[in-house]
């Protein structure tokens, strides 16, 4: 368990750092895959099977392929690079380290949260007669339909956000198709 966690955590972090460091866009996309794929592995380890699979399907299989597609459509030459100036890189690195240390300084505050090592497996999934860990498929589905037996009467479902998200996706579909449609280039000269 901890071995897998270490592997995935290292891959996620190093992949993210490599995204920042590498200059070629396609290499950035490659490292982003490594990073996001390992994050999906972390989700599996955190007993969130469905989220992990959604991460793989939507992020890695969908969004990133879309990005690479965009890279290919906009590349003006092979292995296009647009380097940042050295000064910018140094400043960004400094700010990044400061920012990181600031965020890390807030980590001990997580002790304030009411920790419970296995809350979902103990509280949520038994309500759905599923005993194995990471089995959040059915609870998730019901929550998206607005039914929350796991939190009782006071629990709010997510039916309205779900509907809004679906309409939002439709709008995005139409909007993206409209924006990206082929137009005759005017300033070719």
């Amino acid at each position: 368990m901890s071995l897998f966690f270490t592997i995935f955590a290292l891959a996620a972090c190093l992949g993210a750092v490599a995204v920042v460091i590498s200059q070629s866009v396609v290499r950035m996309a490659f490292w982003l895959i490594v990073s996001l794929g390992s994050v999906a592995g972390l989700f599996f380890l955190a007993d969130a099977d469905f989220i992990g699979a959604a991460q793989l399907l939507i992020y890695v299989g969908g969004t990133l392929v879309l990005l690479v597609f965009g890279i290919m459509l906009t590349a003006s030459g092979p292995y296009m690079k647009i380097p940042a100036s050295p000064g910018e890189t140094v400043v960004a690195g400094l700010i990044g380290v400061m920012f990181l240390s600031m965020v890390f300084s807030t980590l001990p505050a997580s002790k304030e949260w009411k920790q419970s090592p296995n809350y979902i497996a103990e509280t949520v999934t038994p309500e759905f007669a599923d005993s194995s860990e990471g089995n959040t498929l059915r609870p998730l589905g019901f929550a998206l339909l607005g039914v929350r037996p796991d939190v009782g009467q006071d629990g709010a479902g997510y039916l309205l956000p779900f509907e809004i998200a679906s309409v939002h996706l439709l709008v995005v579909l139409i909007g993206a198709a409209y924006l990206a449609r082929a137009k005759r280039r005017q300033d070719n000269a």
Partner: peptide, 13 residues
Amino acid sequence: DCGLFILLSILSL
């Protein structure tokens, strides 16, 4: 429990 979903998502890689 979401085996089919996992399988399709892995194959999409």
